[in-house]
Computed example of a mutant assay.
Amino acid sequence: MDQDQPTCSAKGCQQDAVWALLWNNPKLHTPDRRKTWLACEEHRTTLSDFLGARQFLKDVVPVSEVGTG
């Protein structure tokens, strides 16, 4: 695990993030706002499914495409 690499947002996971899950809760956020969860390969599907079931998930992109700092 790289110390400069952001870590997965899944509870208890310390793996390097590979994916950025861009989401929005329309009851709380303006339509153009994007919140970000980070996911390792193992947790990409479960985190995406969680957000998707609530219709919050807007996009999944490689973590290198978003600013994480």
Rank of each mutant, 00 (worst) to 15 (best):
P62V: 04
V61Q: 10
R44K: 14
C40S: 00
D49R: 10
Q5M: 13
E65H: 13
T68I: 03
C8A: 02
G69Q: 14
L28E: 13
L47G: 06
W19N: 07
L47W: 00
L28F: 06
K27A: 15
G69Y: 12
L47R: 01
K58W: 07
R44G: 02
A17S: 09
R44L: 10
P62W: 05
P26S: 06
A20C: 09
H29W: 11
E65Q: 15
G52D: 11
L47I: 12
T7K: 09
T45V: 14
C8R: 03
C13E: 04
L51K: 01
W23R: 05
P6D: 04
S9I: 06
L38Q: 03
D16I: 00
R44E: 03
G69K: 15
N25D: 15
V63I: 10
R33A: 15
Q14K: 15
L47F: 05
F50R: 00
D2M: 08
T7Q: 12
T46M: 01
L38S: 02
A20Y: 07
N24P: 12
E41Q: 08
D49Y: 00
G67Y: 07
L51H: 00
R33W: 15
L28A: 12
C40W: 00
P62F: 06
E65Y: 10
C8N: 04
Q55T: 13
C40P: 02
L22F: 11
G67W: 10
F56G: 02
K35T: 06
P26Q: 13
A39D: 03
V66F: 08
T7F: 01
L47K: 02
L28M: 06
D49I: 09
K27F: 11
W37I: 01
V61A: 09
L38D: 07
H29A: 12
F50E: 07
E41L: 07
C8D: 05
C40R: 02
E42A: 14
F50P: 01
D4N: 13
P6E: 11
E65D: 15
L57R: 04
T68V: 08
H29S: 13
K11Q: 13
N24I: 13
S48I: 05
Q5I: 08
L51N: 02
G67V: 03
Q15E: 15
Q55A: 14
M1S: 15
A20L: 09
L22T: 09
D2G: 01
Q14A: 15
R54I: 06
W23M: 08
D32F: 15
W23N: 08
S9F: 05
D49W: 00
H29R: 12
E42V: 14
D4Q: 09
T46V: 04
A53V: 00
S48G: 06
